[in-house]
Every structure is written in structure tokens, then in C-alpha cells.
Design a protein around this nucleic acid. Structure first.
Length: 419
RNA sequence: GGAGAGGUGGCUGAGUGGUCUAAAGCGCUCGCCUGCUAAGCGAGUGGGGGAUGAAAAUCCCCUCGAGGGUUCAAAUCCCUCCCUCUCCGCCA
């Protein structure tokens, strides 16, 4: 939720929203509606004060005065109800308009769309395609069974099998070792949440079509543990001295992937269900930009430890999503496609999500809204894709990166000839 | 799943239609007193939104699990939902 006061008073804040694609006419309409809302609120509050006072007098009045006083209070009530209706209409209008305004982009975010990102950094070698892409290799080596999954669950599902399962749990342990070094508290959150939570986390109504709904119960499957982690301090006031409070959630993630037909259909690059370790930070607003850099550095630490070639991009304003004021994507080289593909991303939501969540800090001066940030630590199935392709040897075997070997218990996955 | 009892401030807890402007206690903060500490005495002590103002401030509205309703007036009555506890049933 946007800060209407700042939108009204700070030109830089407003231009940040316009940079994200908010129409000036929409912003003007929202501000104008807010103006009317505040005026209507003032009118209604004065009427309410008068009515409250009249009503209170009745309690103190002598019995013979009561009737006339009740009549007077009733008259004030009729007036109040008219003003309340005006107020309610204005509130609704402001809500509707304000919800369409995205969180303003940070100064350092490049303007433009999907292709206007800035490459911050590029690490490692862009290698040519190997003999197999990850999907072929996965089937050949008995790591992924998509065919039977389709039969039982539908497209975009997979059975992860054999050494891939050890690899999954190794990645999880590896990721937790790294994030715990940085004071993230490990969490296994609920994967089902109420509608209310989806709304507050900003996923409803915009992304409702991407979310699985449980028939018979008013519950929804989370598409990322971010949803559940964001709700951890909903409506709470945290002691400012204790910030930042960091959580790392492990959960399965469920996504309908509506509107992606024909895109990334092979293997497990884009599936309806995958596991992920996600970082989430409740942060002091004064230092949230440093916190974003820290999330990014953890992501780089993980990806580079896995010996994957990658680049970091500063995502352009038009591609940020409503809540992010700035977002970095880490993209790993995928040999079979000859392209970088997203493996993690991290965002600073500033106070946009916290305002709706009611997540605040408290210090000697009073209270204020927290900043919230999130970032992927390790999205398992996608990381497996990159490990399979980049670790693939000429004989079709897969070499496990050194950093992962203590966790996984083997140094390579044998190729097809060796089976 | 069935039956019952509940949800009040940081905490305990009173309050069953009208000075509730939510008692009292505990905790916390400040002051006084005091070899020190404790005790004692006094004062203060939630959050959100808005108006006026340069500001300090002053004033108003909302907030007793959440949302509706009844009433001139709701912590209190009614409805829906959420949660907690007790008993029974079922189940890893």
C-alpha cells in the first residue's frame, strides 16, 4: 500500500511511482479522492462528536427531560448517517485507486521494461551446450520422471528420484548453513494460508489466478514461503533495537503457472510444485538498502560456491512488480539455451507491504513502519537444472561441486553408459 | 466431528445498556524520601487516523478477538466468523 501523504508531499516519491508506470492521471485521481476523503472524514467526525455528546447527556438527564433529549440525539443521528455515507464512499474510492499505485522505484533502478536491466556483475564462463539438456539427462540418469508424473498429476509435475533426492536435501542443508551464519532463524512454515493472509501479503487480488485453492476450506497453497514469513509479525510492534529480524523458510511452493503454456515445458525448470529456501527480513527503515545488498551477497555466495557461472542484474522499473522498490535477479548460465536464466531474486519492499500488514517498530520516539525484504536462498529444482547442465561431463556424468560434496555424500552422478 | 465455557490494556483481572473518561493489582518510567538496596509516597504509563498550527502544542474520531446488526447510547444485547480451554469421539 502506497503512502498517500508522501505521494502528496514529496515530488521524488511521486516520480518514483511514475517511473514504475503509474499514470500521472491515476495518481492525481487518487490524491484528489484522498483530499475528499479527509474532508468527508472531518465532517463525519464532527457530527459524530456532537451525536456522542448528545447521547451521553441522556444518561445524566432527569427523567422528564429524557424524551426531548432523545429526540435531539435522534435528529443528530440522521445527520451523522448522511455524512458517514459520504465518508464511506470516499474511503472506498481512495482504496481502489491507491491499490493500483505501485511502490515507487529507488533512484538506482533503471527506467524501462524487461530488457532495460543493468548488468551489475558477470562471473564465470559462458560454456557451449553439452550433449544433453537437463530434461534429457534427468530422465536418462533416473533423476526425474516427468512422464509418469504427467499421468498421475498432470503436466509440469515431476517425480524427483534417486541421487537427485540426496542432492535436494544436500542443497537445503547447505543453504541453511550459509543463511544461519547471517543470523537467519530457520523456519518451516505452514504451506496453507487464509485468504486474508494472501491479501495482506499482496498476492490477492492481482495474482489470485496463480494460486491453488483448497476445495471445501477457505485455504490457499502458498507459492512461496514469503507469504507465510511476511505474516509472522503481522499487526506487531517490534523493539527497534532487535532489528533486523531475519527468517529463512523452507517449504514446498505451489504455482499454477497460468499463462505460461508452451514456455519452459521441458524438465523441471518451471513446475507447479518445488521446494525452496527463502530469506525474509524485517528491517529498520534506515538501513534497508544495506540489507538488500546483504541478501544479494548471500545469494552470490551460494551460487558461486556451487561453481555456477552467473550474472547479477538490477531489474528495470517496469519489471519490478508492484511491491518492490528495487530488485536484483541472479541469473545462471544455462548451456542448452545459451542464455542466462533466473535462479534467485531479492527485493526491498520498503514499507509498502508493512503498511498493509501493520508491521511496525517501537523505540523511544514512538513507532514507525518496518521495511521488509525477501530473497531466494535456494530454489531447489531450478538449482538442480543448473547443476545438471553446468556439471555435465562428456560421458554424461554429473560432477558435484566441492562445496556440496560433504552434504551429498558422493562426488558425481554416473553417466548413462556407466549404469 | 459432538457438548460446554471463554477471548477486556505490557501482564493478571473487575465490569451483563447510560459519569466506562474501562476499576484494582502487577510491571515499567520519572520525581520525592532514603548509608546502599528494598520498602514507602506522588505523578505518569497503549495503538491507529484526522483537523488547526511555523513549531511546541491543542482538539476530535476510532480501537475491549474480527466483521456486521439493534439502540439516542454497546465491553455489555443479537448474528456470522476466528481463536483458546474442558469433556467425549476419531486418528497418525
Amino acid at each position: 500500500m502506497i503512502d498517500l501523504r508522501r505521494l502528496r508531499e514529496e515530488p521524488a516519491y511521486r516520480s518514483g511511482a511514475e517511473k514504475k508506470g503509474a499514470e500521472p492521471s491515476l495518481i492525481d485521481a487518487a490524491l484528489e479522492a484522498d483530499e475528499r476523503r479527509r474532508a468527508a472524514m472531518h465532517g463525519a467526525e464532527e457530527a459524530r462528536a456532537a451525536q456522542n455528546a448528545a447521547s451521553k447527556e441522556i444518561g445524566r438527564a432527569e427523567p422528564n427531560e429524557r424524551e426531548s433529549k432523545i429526540a435531539e440525539a435522534s435528529r443528530l443521528k440522521v445527520e451523522l448517517e448522511k455524512l458517514e455515507a459520504v465518508e464511506a464512499a470516499a474511503v472506498e474510492e481512495v482504496e481502489e485507486l491507491a491499490l493500483q499505485i505501485p511502490n515507487p522505484a529507488h533512484d538506482s533502478v533503471p527506467a524501462g521494461g524487461e530488457d532495460n536491466f543493468i548488468t551489475e556483475k558477470e562471473v564465470g564462463e559462458q560454456t557451449p551446450p553439452r550433449e544433453y539438456d537437463h530434461a534429457e539427462l534427468g530422465e536418462l540418469l533416473g533423476l526425474v520422471d516427468s512422464e509418469r508424473a504427467v499421468k498421475n498429476s498432470g503436466s509440469r509435475f515431476a517425480y524427483l528420484m534417486g541421487p537427485a533426492v540426496r542432492l535436494e536435501f544436500a542443497l537445503v542443508q547447505f543453504a541453511f548453513d550459509i543463511v544461519e551464519k547471517h543470523d537467519f532463524v530457520p523456519v518451516v512454515p505452514p504451506v496453507l494460508v487464509r485468504e486474508e493472509m494472501m491479501v495482506d501479503a499482496g498476492f490477492f487480488p492481482t495474482d489470485r489466478h496463480q494460486v491453488y485453492e483448497i476445495a471445501g476450506d477457505d485455504l490457499f497453497l502458498i507459492g512461496t514461503s514469503e507469504v507465510a514469513l511476511a505474516g509472522l509479525h503481522r499487526g506487531e510492534r517490534l523493539d527497534r533495537d532487535l532489528l533486523p529480524i531475519r527468517y529463512a523458510g523452507f517449504s514446498s511452493c505451489f504455482r499454477r503457472e497460468a499463462g505460461t503454456y508452451g514456455k519452459d515445458t521441458r524438465g523441471i525448470f518451471r513446475v507447479h510444485q518445488f521446494d525452496k529456501v527463502e530469506m525474509f527480513s524485517f528491517c529498520d527503515p534506515d538501513v534497508s538498502w544495506d540489507e538488500l545488498e546483504m541478501l544479494r551477497s548471500i545469494q552470490e555466495e551460494i551460487v558461486s560456491s556451487l561453481e555456477l557461472p552467473y550474472r547479477v542484474i538490477n531489474v528495470a522499473s517496469g519489471d519490478l512488480g508492484a511491491a518492490a522498490a528495487k530488485k536484483y535477479d541472479l541469473e545462471v548460465w544455462l548451456p542448452s539455451e545459451g542464455a542466462y536464466r533466473e535462479v534467485t531474486s531479492c527485493s526491498n519492499y520498503t514499507d509498502y507491504s508493512a503498511r498493509r500488514m501493520g508491521s511496525r517498530y517501537r523505540d523511544d520516539e514512538g513507532t514507525g513502519l518496518l521495511h521488509t525484504l525477501n530473497g531466494t536462498a535456494c530454489a531447489i529444482s531450478r538449482t538442480l537444472v543448473f547443476l545438471m547442465e553446468n556439471g555435465q561431463q562428456s560421458d554424461g556424468s554429473i560432477t558435484i561441486p566441492d562445496a556440496l560434496r560433504p552434504y551429498v555424500g558422493f562426488e558425481s552422478i554416473p553417466g548413462p553408459q556407466q549404469l
